[in-house]
Design a protein around this nucleic acid. Structure first.
Lengths: 120, 120
DNA sequence: CAGTATCCATCTGGATACTG
DNA sequence: CAGTATCCAGATGGATACTG
């Protein structure tokens, strides 16, 4: 596989990396790991996220078929979010990268300290 | 593990995701998969990258201990870049996410078309 | 409760010019 | 060859106010 920006394959990969690499997506996906959650419930579970960014992130995940959105026609409104099967496979795969990050966090922090103290 | 932005673990994970999720890092890492490469060689291998962004990306990878930079004191200058052992484990792990992206690219594209045609 | 709308600061990265 | 320096456009996301 080639990662060049101008072939077709790469643009698809960039789409996915742009989604996964943004500020809130993995956090939202992680919140949904055990099943259905409501909007406000998610907002409480993700420290620091704004109402706007939760909406934006959920809409993008829904658009990509990674999260299912269910509106219950009641008053007050109730909307449920859950991972689709494809969303669950994303969680599983992305989690390995997160575990890599955890495993190597100290090494990276140490490398940065050395680099910054050497170069100034 | 918790992904909340305010605990320590998450900030480390965000560091890594910010690195991997940026526009050029994985492309550069991928170019180095078979061994040492020179600056101009890398630039030729990555379609669309500017000189500035190749430098910025390589410096960040070097700072994190993922890439080793070797300067040969010759004229004209010769600088070699290669993955460190840690850089090689990153390539391996990140590649699984890229394979996920390839596997599900059509599903995601289809989901987007359906979403966009339904909602307008 | 679950959003939408608007405005704005910051960050990312591209273009261009210059250099040891 | 392998960079550095500067400038600038566009994307990202936070704050705030409003709503069915």
């Amino acid at each position: 596989m080639d990662l060049n920006v101008h072939d077709e394959m790469t643009c698809q990969v960039r789409d996915v990396l742009d989604r996964v690499g943004d500020k809130w997506t993995l956090n939202v996906v992680h919140q949904l790991r055990h099943g259905t959650r409501r909007f406000t419930d998610l907002k409480r579970g993700i420290d620091g996220i704004s109402q706007r960014m939760l909406t934006v992130t959920l809409r993008a995940l829904e658009r990509d078929g990674l999260v299912a959105r269910t509106v219950h026609p009641v008053v007050p409104p109730r909307v449920d979010y859950a991972l689709t099967p494809m969303g669950q496979t994303l969680l599983k795969t992305a989690w390995e990268l997160i575990e890599w990050a955890q495993t190597h966090a100290d090494d990276i922090a140490g490398a940065r300290r050395r680099y910054d103290s050497t170069a100034g």
